[in-house]
Design a protein around this nucleic acid. Structure first.
Length: 418
RNA sequence: GUGGGCGUAGCUCAGCUGGUAGAGCACUCGGUUGUGGUCCGAGAUGUCGCGGGUUCGAGCCCCGUCGUUCACCCCA
């Protein structure tokens, strides 16, 4: 009887040892600055009521119209695998009245997100993000701090070849005024069918077109930043000032376009230089209307999402991953089956003493076991035989230079260090 | 969703103008019975992604399909 193999679903990225160690490290580096700034964990469902994203992310976005994993559950409810994190956080904040306490609500999250796109380098159908949200306060200092936290995450990874682009999308009035003029401008252009259709849905998208001829046409298009209200402009000036004070380097990108509809005011993106087409490693911004749209108070908020998969690719490209292999302190080999119990007991004792210890399994030859110890990268090896069992002490072999050091099983600290 | 490249042992790949598969690495064992990294020897491993077609004969040609990859699109 032979069973067929089952493959992973298309487009999912899996992290297996030893690469998973790098993945875990990257994720930690990215989120640590947020923890240090007082953000607290929020664990949310990976699936939500479809309406949350339709309403929250926006019906005009590609994310909602063609990239969501939507299905009906057994109770006839329309369910969607989350394509991004902010809407879910907002839903939970509103539902649990977190915004009735001290503001801003500061939370972080980490997990997988889903988008049914054609897979490509750095683009997967299931991908990982860490992110934060600060909800309920509209303070340019907060905008700057949020951006600085994201930037610190990338710095923690040792990345250098990335840039931070920022812009302000202004408030509702700013955007409405700009949109009128921009539509007028675009109507005068000679665009192909698909492009002009896209322009109807969101004219800002045309700014993001990569074709040189389009870029040239758009060179003289009206820029949103020229339409900012006094309030928006003032707010943005302060953000830039604080960023400068924080030593966060940025570039203004007046043509930045984000894929989610809810962004207003300060908006930003981190772009890496070595990643090919999928170069965005993180992004975020302020969202004035989102909470109200989802049935909550009319409070503003700001947050970001950082791509863990892409950050890892960037770290690989820049060769900044730590070389240290994740190794055990102690590798324990039992000489024959009779000694296995002693070996297991010793390993458990070593772990209680605060050291990582692994046991060689499979009853292979001592030579094979030593090879296994070598490959595991363990710092020390202990061979357990009759004399060890009788005396209660072991000879620890330091693998780096081969020296043998005798020590009582209960006093590993003397050799392995604190 | 649209286009192009690719798909041979666990990994990296070779396989000439079609004649039914190979290398290196890795893996297991051994080089006399309690100590690794080098060296030497031995061994196991593939329905050549899958399904059709052409042919006396296909890993090599054709079609389809799936996967992968790059770009478009989109974005983390």
């Amino acid at each position: 009887m032979k069973f067929e193999k089952i493959a992973a679903p298309k487009g999912v990225r899996e992290y297996l040892p030893p690469e998973s160690n790098s993945f875990e490290w990257v994720r930690e580096q990215l989120i640590n600055p947020a923890k240090a700034a007082g953000y607290q964990l929020m664990e949310l469902p990976v699936f939500e009521d479809t309406a949350l994203f339709n309403r929250g992310v926006g019906e005009s976005t590609d994310v909602v119209t063609k990239e969501m994993y939507t299905f009906e559950d057994r109770g006839g409810r329309s369910i969607t695998l989350r394509p991004e994190g902010t809407a879910g956080v907002m839903r939970a904040v509103i539902e649990n009245n977190l915004d009735r306490g001290q503001l801003p609500v500061k939370v972080w999250y980490s997990g997988q997100f889903f988008r049914a796109e054609r897979p490509q380098a750095g683009r997967y159908r299931q991908f990982y993000q860490v992110g934060i949200e600060a909800i309920g306060v509209d303070d340019p200092g907060l905008d700057a701090e949020v951006i600085a936290i994201a930037d610190q995450g990338f710095k923690n990874l040792g990345l250098k070849n990335y840039r931070l682009e920022i812009t302000s999308l202004g408030d509702a009035q700013s955007r409405a005024a700009h949109r009128v003029d921009l539509m007028k401008f675009i109507a005068g252009l000679d665009l192909d069918e698909a492009t002009s259709q896209r322009a109807q849905i969101n004219p800002l998208r045309i700014f993001d077109d990569k074709r040189p001829e389009i870029r040239q046409m758009m060179a003289s298009a009206p820029i949103l930043m020229d339409y900012l209200s006094e309030y928006s402009n003032n707010h943005f000036e302060k953000v830039k000032g604080y960023l400068a004070d924080l030593g966060v380097r940025y570039e203004i990108n007046q043509r930045m376009v984000r894929g989610l509809d809810y962004y207003t005011g300060t908006t930003f993106e981190f772009v890496h230089g070595d990643l090919g087409a999928q170069s965005g490693i993180g992004g975020g911004g302020r969202y004035d209307g989102l909470m109200e749209t989802l049935g909550g108070q009319p409070l503003s908020g700001i947050g970001f999402g950082l791509g863990v998969d892409r950050a890892l690719l960037a770290a690989i490209a820049e060769n900044t991953l730590p070389v240290s292999q994740f190794q055990s302190d102690l590798y324990i080999i039992a000489l024959g089956e009779e000694m296995k119990s002693t070996a297991l007991t010793f390993a458990a004792s070593a772990r209680r003493q605060g050291f990582s210890a692994e046991v060689d399994f499979g009853d292979r030859s001592l030579k094979g076991a030593m090879k296994g110890a070598d490959k595991s990268g363990a710092r020390f090896v202990a061979v357990i035989g009759e004399s060890e069992r009788e005396s209660g002490s072991v000879e620890l072999k330091r693998m780096s230079d081969g020296t043998l050091i005798s020590v009582k099983m209960g006093e590993l600290k003397k050799v392995l260090g604190a």
